[in-house]
Design a protein around this nucleic acid. Structure first.
Lengths: 130, 130
DNA sequence: TTATTATCAGTAATGGTTACTATTACTAAT
DNA sequence: ATTAGTAATAGTAACCATTACTGATAATAA
């Protein structure tokens, strides 16, 4: 991966933001520093950077993908009013409860969206592993 | 909401499936019974039915929205291999753990995707409630 | 320097979803 | 039952987020 001005600015802006921006939000920011940059370049670099593990593409619900410069293990809280996403302090997650989250973020906590992830029986057979 | 043949068939097919189909998967099914139906009609009816609380639009990660005729409180497990989504047995969720989920579904459980949901401080001020 | 080629800007194409429009067919009131 | 009013429909265009393409540019190695 070559070092380019575009990638440098994209990563720098993402690291400054703690708002988990979408590609076009980031594009608007970056455009102020590199007016000739194209949206495609932003998408391509976000893709490269996340493949390399330098940033994270968030698997949140919603129509747009969001990106996070913090690759550490942490969770998010999403505002059902405005869509804003904030970080939850890391920590194995065991002892975390709604009141603790509320205290840490200032949110009124309404609930949790939980999906389990795994390998289904059919796919498990294919790879051999169980 | 008037009673139409299209809506009846769409709902009937969705209730028969336990695979949480996307709109176009459902469209392919319904087309076998109503060959002249249009994809837009499927989308419109899924939207109406979920607004009325008759079905559920799932807020899962992924590029396509999925729908579920089971509106009861339950969670899902998603296969990272093929994208298949299965139901987890309802139950307050407290005592649920990976081994229990694995036993119930046959999946090899890899992890959980958790998002907290709430009202952020700014939105909380607007509505007055805390 | 120069050659190589990854990356770029600009734009077209794609996939999922929603919006529009003239037509059809439920439903309620005659 | 007939009619009038109007949801809902089929078909299609538009929309939005994202990806793919193409010729030009610029980062790196020789």
């Amino acid at each position: 991966m070559r070092k380019t001005k575009q990638r440098e600015v994209i990563l720098d802006e993402l690291m400054q933001l703690h708002t988990h921006p979408s590609a076009d939000e980031l594009y608007e920011r970056v455009k102020k520093r590199l007016p000739r940059i194209s949206l495609g370049t932003v998408y391509r670099n976000l893709d490269m950077l996340s493949r390399e593990g330098i940033i994270r593409r968030l698997d949140t619900a919603g129509s747009q993908k969001r990106f996070d410069a913090d690759t550490g293990d942490h969770q998010h809280i999403c505002c059902v009013g405005c869509g804003r996403i904030d970080d939850l302090a890391a920590g194995a997650g065991r002892a975390r409860c709604d009141t603790r989250v509320a205290k840490g973020t200032g949110y009124r906590v309404l609930g949790r969206r939980i999906e389990y992830l795994g390998i289904c029986p059919a796919c498990g057979k294919k790879t051999g592993r169980r």
